[in-house]
Design a protein around this nucleic acid. Structure first.
Lengths: 192, 192, 192, 192
DNA sequence: CCGTAAGCGAGACGGTACGTCCCGTCTTGAG
DNA sequence: CTCAAGACGGGACGTACCGTCTCGCTTACGG
């Protein structure tokens, strides 16, 4: 089972597969996605999927990454609290609107029984979005705008966790007022 | 097809099914549980499962509820912060030790594509555990120990979300120091 | 893998499967038969085929046996040579006409790489047709109409082999004149 | 798509393919032979097989012809009956020993659903072996050693068919005594 | 003597059949 | 009359080959 040579990979098939996988995910949800349906919709042999991805979860996640993104962390021109608030609102918009971002919830669900997907989600989705916030937070700690005796990752959790908690666990609705309140409380907790 | 008569339900089968379902869940994880395996292990016909539960998720969740619990919220004899901290440590212990509580993570995962399970989890697992905390929080707000201008459910989220966030999303380890820090920060945010 | 209980077998499915298998065999040939097509045409789950038959060859052969037969060996009222000749003409008719008997050739072909099918063909198709001829031959040997110093099975081979040889091996056409000649020569060889 | 130029054909590949195809056939049987395995074992691209042969059956049969042969029909120095008997014993030896000749049975089997292979077998394997016998038989008819009123091909069938019948159809063992008996009976039938 | 066209090894491609597993429903026979 | 046992139609899974295709490479012929 030598790994196939990525250089010989068909770009057309690759694209068609990601498009098909995302389309089914977006239209009918994660449960409705199957390897067979992806292949059929992409006009591709089933073996081509198995050649390049180990599982349905891997294809769907790559398709998700390919189509969905958040805006970058606002880099300059505003205070840390304002930038943080804007970034969190970006997450909220993604999860709530209808363009596929809300399916992340189902991917996180699948990751609970799929360690490989869990790792991919963590490394390729969450960490890239936390990194710039962490960096800005460290700057803010250095300038004294935020108390310096708190582990930055814990502080980030404090902000990001409630949004995901409502999405995944409590089922309570999430809206702008909620995230604003959460951000306010966190900033209060992190005040020097 | 009239609904079956619960009065005639076989108590032995019920017990055997819950035991079998939990045993498979505990030993091999949620994916390994199938209706067939539960029935076989319980020495029960498969139809008996379908008669009383609509899905594997429902059986497994009932089995989970039957076996797993947290201690009650500490009712008296301590300040609100101390009672809150103790309660959160109880959750941590449940999720981390090996007696089946950690499988809740997989149930929450399954709930992402199963609204019925999501509702059951919310109503039968989370809300009963939040209710006494909410009540104590309201008392604390009334006595002025906690600021009164914050929605109690949002405040609860602030405390409970980070623990679940790490479990479900970030994959970072959770330990006593982490939850202590989180509780400290939340109390700071909620200080009058 | 305990053998399933034949008493619980669905008669409707059984019939539908044999009908479907034979229909595909007859219409399109042995190569065109697949387990999937049989199941689809019979309106049956694929697992039902695998439950009762170990292979496509087994289903198709049972379907063949179910639909195709030769007339019985002419029992009385004629001399042994005449009865033998009539019987061999029956085989010829079966193999040459269009009602499915000609597909036996493909079954024998498949049996060359399928010992189980080879055994089934031998025991359930050929031997039942040889047995009455052998019995009549032994009678003829006893009455002195046929020389008694020849092994009956070898004598039967002498008659039946050329027909099958042309069908399977040489590809030469087979007709009534050919089998008549063969029967004549065999009778000459077997004359006392 | 112009036919490829045989002059540029790689002799090394050709040889390696025939060797590989026969080796797999001999060691594991016809079913185990696949185009992929031949190519891999020969160290050859799969396209090279498809360039020069239309099917697995064609490669394998050419490999068989390349490796397996019968002795020539004994030309002189003995009576027709003795030469015939010797020749038939040669076939028996081929089919029974372990040097690959017994795989002819599987090739004949495959030919039942492959007209092209059937034709090739007939023209390139059987007819070359029947021709000298037919010629000798005609001589014997001319000299009066064999009755002249029998079609030579039918007479040949009489001798060759029983051996192949046992191999392909009845599964009964074939040995020297059997073929001797058959030859004796045929000679009796053909006696003037 | 050099380009160019063919054959070549390699292997990805769109397909199809396989045999297994599980789903949720329906049927049967023993207690 | 219940209920364990399990057959049923259905469908996804992952594997094995099929026959076609596209890559670079090497090789030998013809301008």
């Amino acid at each position: 089972m030598p790994a196939p040579d990525p250089a010989r990979r068909s770009q057309e098939s690759w694209r068609a597969i990601l498009d098909a996988a995302f389309a089914i995910l977006d239209e009918e949800g994660y449960q409705a996605v199957t390897m067979s349906r992806i292949a059929a919709r992409a006009g591709v042999g089933r073996q081509t999927l198995y050649r390049w991805w180990p599982s349905k979860a891997a294809v769907v996640f790559e398709a998700f990454l390919d189509k969905v993104t958040t805006g970058p962390f606002p880099e300059e021109g505003a205070s840390f609290p304002e930038r943080l608030r804007a970034h969190v609102h970006g997450f909220l918009a993604l999860y709530v609107d209808g363009s596929g971002g809300h399916r992340l919830r189902e991917l996180i669900g699948a990751a609970q029984t799929d360690p490989e997907l869990a790792r991919a989600l963590s490394e390729q989705w969450f960490e890239p979005r936390r990194a710039p916030v962490r960096k800005a937070l460290l700057d803010a700690q250095r300038t004294g705008d935020v108390r310096a005796d708190v582990d930055p990752d814990t502080a980030l959790d404090l902000v990001f966790a409630p949004l995901h908690y409502r999405l995944l666990v409590s089922g309570e609705p999430v809206d702008a007022a909620y995230v604003d309140t959460v951000v306010d409380l966190c900033l209060a907790a992190l005040a020097p």
